[in-house]
Simulated assay, not measured.
Amino acid sequence: MTLDLHGIIPPLVSPFTADEQPDLDALRAEVRYHLDLGVHGICVTGSTGDGQMLSLEDSVAIADTAVRETAGQVPVVAGIIQDSTREVVRYGTAIAGTGVDALQVTPVHYLFQPDEERTVEYYRRIADETGLPIVIYNVIPYALIPATTVARVLNEVPDVVGVKQSGGNIHQLADLLHMDPAGGTVLTAVDDLLYPSYLLGAKGAISATLTVVPELCLAQWDAVQRGDLAAALELHNKQLPVWRAIDGPNMTVRIKEALAMQGRNGGHALSPLTPVSDAERQALRAALIAADVKLAS
Rank of each mutant, 00 (worst) to 15 (best):
V153G: 06
L233D: 08
R264E: 08
H109L: 04
Q113E: 14
P158E: 04
I246Q: 00
L229G: 03
S277G: 09
D228K: 06
L144W: 06
L54Q: 05
H236M: 04
G201K: 14
A94C: 06
A202T: 07
E121Y: 01
A208F: 13
H109C: 11
V89F: 05
T211Y: 06
I134W: 10
E215D: 15
V39K: 05
D25L: 11
L216N: 09
L132D: 00
P275S: 07
H6N: 12
T274N: 11
G167H: 06
T188H: 12
L3A: 01
L54H: 01
G49H: 00
P241V: 04
D64H: 15
T106S: 12
V100C: 10
T85N: 10
A219Y: 06
L3D: 00
A269R: 13
V276Q: 00
A63L: 08
V242H: 02
V74P: 08
R281W: 03
Q21A: 14
L235I: 15
V108P: 07
L111M: 12
A71H: 13
T252Y: 03
V186E: 11
V139D: 04
L200M: 15
D4E: 10
S271F: 13
A296F: 15
P11Q: 06
T45R: 05
D180V: 08
T85F: 13
A205P: 06
K238N: 03
V139Q: 07
Q82S: 11
G49R: 00
A147L: 01
Q82F: 04
E234C: 04
A71I: 14
Q73F: 04
H34R: 02
I134D: 02
D180Y: 07
I81K: 03
K238E: 09
V135W: 00
E129L: 07
E57R: 15
V153Y: 12
E257L: 01
T148Y: 09
G51S: 06
M179A: 15
Q104R: 06
V139P: 02
T149K: 01
I170P: 00
G168S: 07
P75M: 09
R226I: 05
Q225E: 10
